[in-house]
Design a protein around this nucleic acid. Sequence first.
DNA 1: ACGCTGACTATTA
DNA 2: CTAATAGCCAGCG
Length: 127
Amino acid sequence: MRKYRKLPNNNLPFAVGKNDSFFAAVYDVVRQIPKGRVTSYGAIGAALGAKSSARMVGWAMNNAHAIIPKVPAHRVVNRQGLLTGKMHFAHPKAMQEALERENIIVKEDQVQDFQQIFWDPIVELSL
DNA sequence: ACGCTGACTATTA
DNA sequence: CTAATAGCCAGCG
């Protein structure tokens, strides 16, 4: 964690390799999520070529608060559209409120019309 | 080096 | 619906 507390190259393009650029790549994708849209950890992992490493994506989000350009982590939910990471925000309600400010309806931690607003980085970024 | 943990996901019961 | 299992892999004590 501390190792990545301050990424030397958080605006690095897609350089998923040996160094910590995996995180940078994750943040890069997340920052490209349009307002009013959401994506999943697995989708991001898949876009980075590590589709089985959704946990790493979630782990990367844990560091997101320390990243320079703000990372809209609230637009990243799990595969079912559930706000599983809301407790990691300043306040448990912060995530839902942030989403609702973007016209995303959230009910009982579940993003409504999830399929419609789902933003697939593989498709949208033509990966 | 080892075992545990986790903002995940898929499958099975 | 819940629970258990099994992959997953970087960090940490």
